[in-house]
């Protein structure tokens, strides 16, 4: 157990976005993050639009972009897919780990994930709810990108 934690501590997780309109899920993610990261900068967004606007603002102000995003699909105003679509248009150079969290078992969603994965330079994970634990690999893009 000593080694991975060391490894993470080497990985600087500056900030994390949680984009989900369900307060219970947000509560769960925050709780599960505690054992794997000491990152204090966790921002919560109710929908894709809020998160996207925040990204744009950060880029304009030259702030650090989040290293990890937890993204729900079914959300009002701008859903997870629309958020991804818009985000890919932004000139982001950093690789971000994006964890898609959904309770959907619609095969269409799985298919969309595959499409996005192939045209996206970020790390795209797909996780069906419920989740009980967040692995260190869910925060680490180097591990995934080998």
């Amino acid at each position: 157990m000593e080694q991975p934690s060391k490894y993470i501590s080497m990985m600087k997780v500056n900030s994390i976005f949680i984009v989900d309109d369900d307060p219970i899920t947000v509560f769960g993610i925050k709780r599960m993050l505690k054992p794997v990261t000491s990152c204090e900068d966790v921002e919560i967004f109710q929908n894709g639009k809020e998160a996207f606007d925040a990204l744009v603002t950060k880029m304009e102000q030259g702030d650090n972009l989040p290293n990890v995003i937890f993204l729900d699909i079914n959300m009002p105003i701008m859903d997870g897919w629309d958020f991804l679509e818009e985000m890919l248009q932004l000139p982001i150079e950093e690789r971000i780990v994006i964890n898609i969290l959904t309770s959907s078992i619609d095969p269409m969603d799985h298919q969309k994930w595959n499409e996005f994965k192939s045209k996206c330079s970020h790390v795209l994970n797909f996780k069906n709810k419920p989740i009980f634990k967040i692995e260190t690999s869910d925060l680490n893009c180097l591990n995934m990108a080998s």
């Binding site: 369900d22 219970i24 899920t25 769960g28 079914n74 309770s103 959907s104 078992i105 709810k129 419920p130 989740i131 009980f132």
Partner: peptide, 10 residues
């Protein structure tokens, strides 16, 4: 599913 997922998690 989303509700049951929440139950399981909680």
């Amino acid at each position: 599913r989303s509700h049951s997922a929440n139950f399981s998690m909680l």
